[in-house]
Amino acid sequence: MNSTPEADQLNIVSAKGLIKDYNSFRAVNDIEFEIEKGECFGFLGPNGAGKTSVMRILYCFMPPTRGTVRVFGIDVLDNPSLIKSRIGVMPQDDNLDVDLAVLENLVVYARYFGIPRKRSVPSALELLDYVELADKMNAPILSLSGGMKRSLLLARALVNHPEVLVLDEPTTGLDPHNRRMVWDKLDDLKSKKTTLVLTTHYMEEADRLCDRVAIMDSGRIVTIDSPTNLKTIHGGSLEEVYLKLTGRPLEP
């Protein structure tokens, strides 16, 4: 994809006065943040903090109630299709197509981005090799372990070679080995200047991957800073900082 003025700006994602209401419940309460091109930015917080709502607005799954959100300099309400074409999404929930084998899940998904089969098949094979699933290309989805499904979801999120990769709890339910495998892949993507935006309950994950984190509680952002700065300013581990700032533990 050719570079555009919007893609060359320093802040690839920005939000101002962002509010999201669900009927009478305010899930996101007047927050503001910016994400720099090429960084890994994490949202930390317990269930119900508003993290997933923010993510869904960023990748144009749902509109904000109020406020302005821009991705690549484009308002999410103005051209969501263009934004979606340049973003990859790894959801928290497993939504793989159980009627298709592993390889076909990627090939069919590529159609949404207008990628023809003659291009999508070789690319999908490369992605399966990248996430260490090449030997499972013809396997049914229901035969995969939880870790394999998470790896396939990551591969699917990369089908369109996204400039921004959105990851909602990317390692939930994984054993330590598979979790570190995903971390290694995300480190590699960071080294290639892919912008990563993730939510996580795992403090070690945020500490390992994130350049900056936004700690959220009850729909608000409590603070935004690097894990190193937060630990220096407040003392202790990142989890202890979280406890100090919010007064409650993360929920698994």
Rank of each mutant, 00 (worst) to 15 (best):
F61A: 15
S237L: 11
L198A: 08
S24G: 10
V69A: 03
L250F: 11
L82T: 11
E6Q: 14
A214H: 01
M62I: 14
L158P: 06
N138T: 11
T4Q: 00
S151R: 15
K244M: 10
N229R: 05
A139W: 04
C210A: 13
G114L: 07
T195N: 04
P122C: 00
P252T: 13
I224P: 02
P116H: 07
S14H: 09
L250V: 15
R179W: 06
I12W: 12
T171N: 09
N105L: 01
L165H: 11
Q92I: 00
C40F: 09
R111N: 09
G42M: 04
E34R: 14
L77H: 00
K136N: 02
G48F: 09
F25I: 04
D94L: 01
D225T: 02
I215C: 00
V98W: 00
D78C: 01
V13F: 09
L165K: 12
S120G: 01
T232M: 13
N47I: 05
T232A: 14
M148Y: 09
L18V: 13
E240F: 07
R119Q: 15
R180D: 12
G42L: 03
N178D: 10
C40N: 04
E251R: 14
I224D: 05
L144A: 06
F72A: 12
R86D: 08
D175N: 14
G147F: 00
V131P: 01
P249L: 06
D207V: 01
E39R: 01
A15G: 15
F61L: 15
L230K: 01
E204F: 09
S24F: 11
K118V: 13
R26H: 14
I215T: 04
W183A: 13
L58W: 07
E251N: 12
E6N: 13
A49P: 04
P227E: 02
D93T: 13
F33Q: 06
A101E: 12
T200N: 08
L174M: 12
K192W: 04
D175M: 06
R66M: 11
H234V: 11
L44N: 03
K185L: 15
T65I: 10
H161C: 07
K149R: 15
S3L: 15
T172K: 04
K193V: 08
T195V: 06
S123C: 03
G114Q: 08
G17E: 13
P63G: 04
T223N: 06
S218D: 13
L144K: 05
P116I: 07
V69K: 05
T4I: 01
A15M: 02
M137Y: 13
V166S: 02
F33K: 05
L189W: 03
T52H: 01
K136V: 02
I233C: 00
E169R: 09
D129Y: 00
L158F: 10
R119S: 05
F41K: 05
S53P: 02
P140Q: 12
I215V: 04
K190C: 00
E163I: 03
D207L: 01
N138S: 12
W183I: 14
L198V: 07
A214E: 03
P46E: 07
G17S: 14
